[in-house]
Design a protein around this nucleic acid. Structure first.
Lengths: 228, 228
DNA sequence: TTTCTAATTATTGTCGACAATCTGATGCTT
DNA sequence: AAGCATCAGATTGTCGACAATAATTAGAAA
């Protein structure tokens, strides 16, 4: 389901899912938009059957909300939604850290460290460009989540919750000093995992996520007050 | 999605979803069975379109596993699966308790207490009958989950994870002294919530779930050794 | 006999059309 | 004029058939 995941047989529903999902996450289809099945079918040049399959999966990631016989709408971003989402994310990624400290192999840890160094150099080159930070952060968290080795946890975080997380981050932006700080926080977390100190990794991850939440929350508040 | 939930428009896909889901949870369709779309369509007397909608939702609750172009199988119960599932359940229901202690109204708490008393008397009448215990337990946990007031948490627990939990419980059984002890544990949890002691409610819930896990684990081990 | 190949069969994925339901506008009643 | 009922339009839900892919079996070669 994720970009890095290998899929044996790619079906039309899979393709259109990725396209629509990206369009929603990146705001190309704005939040709150009414989804019209015939319109999307024309737009992506396929029948309604695979489209509906894709919509079902989008509902699963909370990117759209469907009501029977009435249609679907793209989810709206809100402060309450952000808080509920990040409340859960703190808890689940905290758990992922404790499990990762227990289950990750030395090689997996080394790979994450190499990844961080690579991201750091990439970040230096593309100073201030948020896309790389976004992709790098997602990748780091994804590795730790996989390291938990708990299939249900992996599924919930990376297949269900993370696209919504990305939607908040992409549309409300990583900005300011957080971009550079995140690297240090990532380093500290992987160090704790390498030391098999699950408690510490848990704590650091919760703080890392809480800081990210405050950042987005502030953006939402500013946007809300300036418009309303 | 749950039985107690009110749904404005009931569609054919909804109906067949409930039917198949119940059949899987209760073991009428055995674990590991290959799902044949044409066969199920004949059996439940509808076309494949709403059936596939139902299958997509069953995949979401981890009751079936699909591989593209190859079909779907009913999930197999295993010790590793049970541990992964309950690991997550402990964490999420622990969180639900902390949030419930914060957000549940006095009236909601009173309703849960009334529910427990009602279940106790029902239990006395139907001594040893596991169905009522099953339903009562699910109902109690469901109330606490709702009390968290976190829509994502509610969705994950009650719409995605709980049918699989019920599948383990129904097929591997609540038995022995746990049936009567569970009531006391429920009482203690709701008392902690009533006292707004989220930490304690969290701890008690984790123990309650861990005890339930040990119970099922033992059944799985016995079954595994006797058959293999 | 075993193994690889190839055709057959069955299953899943996709399509276009029809039926049921909801939304919005129009006209009537009070 | 306000509110409600009714009707037209559009949208979702469902159906049966076709196309594409995978599983299976038969057959030939080693």
């Amino acid at each position: 389901m994720l970009a890095t995941e290998f899929k044996e047989a790619i079906t039309a529903a899979d393709r259109v899912l990725v396209q629509i999902r990206t369009a929603i996450v990146e705001g190309e289809i704005p939040a709150g938009t009414k989804i019209s099945e015939p319109e999307l079918a024309r737009r992506y040049d396929l029948s309604r059957a695979p489209l509906r399959e894709a919509l079902a999966r989008l509902e699963r990631c909370h990117l759209i909300e469907r009501t029977p016989n009435a249609g679907a709408r793209v989810v709206k971003l809100s402060i309450e939604g952000l808080r509920s989402l990040y409340q859960l994310r703190e808890e689940l990624e905290g758990l992922a850290c404790r499990l990762a400290a227990e289950h990750m192999t030395e090689q997996e840890i080394a790979e994450v460290r190499a990844l961080l160094d690579q991201h750091l150099s990439t970040q230096r080159v593309h100073e201030g460009e948020s896309y790389y930070q976004e992709a790098g952060d997602v990748d780091f968290h994804y590795r730790v989540i996989l390291g938990s080795k708990n299939p249900y946890l992996i599924n919930i975080l990376s297949d269900e919750l993370y696209f919504l997380v990305r939607m908040y981050r992409v549309q409300l932006g990583m900005n300011g000093p957080r971009v550079s700080r995140a690297f240090d926080e990532h380093k500290a977390i992987i160090n704790a995992i390498a030391n098999r100190d699950g408690e510490l990794a848990d704590l650091l991850m919760r703080r890392h996520i809480a800081a990210s939440k405050r950042n987005i929350e502030q953006q939402l508040l500013q946007q809300g007050t300036s418009h309303g």
